[in-house]
């Protein structure tokens, strides 16, 4: 069984994002980038399925700038077998990515597509769902446990107050939640070996996909600064402030 794992290059989760002075976007100039942490969990899950003898090949794919190669090399260092970069400098939105992934899913015919439930930069949480819809495949999103038996995947999802377990027939799309697994380190020897693994580059046009953005970003703003708190003398003063200043009671 082949697994396709899409990975996104995003601003590193340790970096404090800063909005550009003109409010058009988050400033990414010379900022440390890394693999979307949810996608790292997806790569790890695919590797565990491979190591368990269920999967035979793990193919990783990323869409975007040439620098996404670094993200793919990281995935290869984590154990993926080969990588595909869909290279474009167009701003990619979830629908465009889902269409690119659809084209690759048709080509590669994986039994399972595992990807992060969302990317930590735009928090859209749409790509996996859109891909499933475009392919007409079942989807099991926000997975916290995945088992694959007899052409079916059993997926546990954390829901309010408990766990819901779904069973989907393969091929299917699974998106990963935070507690699915703890990804391994990319070791130096594996990073060295990853340099020699195959990585092919294609263009959106090669896949016959129009990636032009459908949504326009009007404005990006930082959250309002939290105002300093104040100490009140007694309960009466607190009630007075809540009533007259905050106007919440």
């Amino acid at each position: 069984m082949k697994i396709l794992v899409p990975v996104k290059r995003v601003i590193d989760y340790n970096v404090r994002p800063r909005v550009k002075a003109d409010g058009s976007a988050v400033d990414l100039a010379n900022v440390k980038m890394a693999m979307n942490p949810f996608d790292e969990i997806a790569v790890e899950e695919a590797m565990r399925l491979k190591e368990a003898g269920i999967a035979t090949e793990v193919v990783v794919v990323s869409c975007g700038l040439p620098a996404c190669q670094e993200t793919l090399r990281t995935a290869l260092a984590l154990g993926a077998d080969r990588a595909i970069l869909v290279e474009t400098d167009v701003e990619l939105q979830p629908l465009a990515v889902a269409k690119l992934l659809k084209a690759l899913a048709v080509q590669e015919a994986p039994q399972l597509v595992i990807l992060g439930k969302q990317a930590i930069d735009d928090d859209s949480s749409q790509t996996g769902q859109m891909l499933a819809a475009l392919m007409g495949w079942p989807q099991a999103v926000f997975a916290s446990k995945v088992t694959v038996v007899d052409g079916k995947a059993k997926v546990a999802r954390e829901v309010d107050g408990g766990t819901e377990t779904l069973e989907v027939s393969l091929p299917a799309v699974v998106t990963t939640d935070l507690r699915l697994n703890e990804p391994r380190y990319a070791t130096l020897p594996n990073i060295m070996k990853a340099k020699k693994k195959p990585l092919v580059t294609v263009k959106p046009a090669d896949l016959g996909v129009d990636v032009a953005p459908r949504l326009a970003t009007l404005k990006v703003a930082e959250p309002a600064k939290r105002k300093a708190g104040a100490m009140v003398a007694d309960v009466a003063a607190l009630v007075d402030k809540l009533k007259n200043e905050a106007k919440v009671i």
Partner: peptide
Amino acid sequence: GVGKDGQPTANHQEGM
């Protein structure tokens, strides 16, 4: 992947 206590964690990887 070495823990606070100096013991290897589940994710331990040796140096090179």
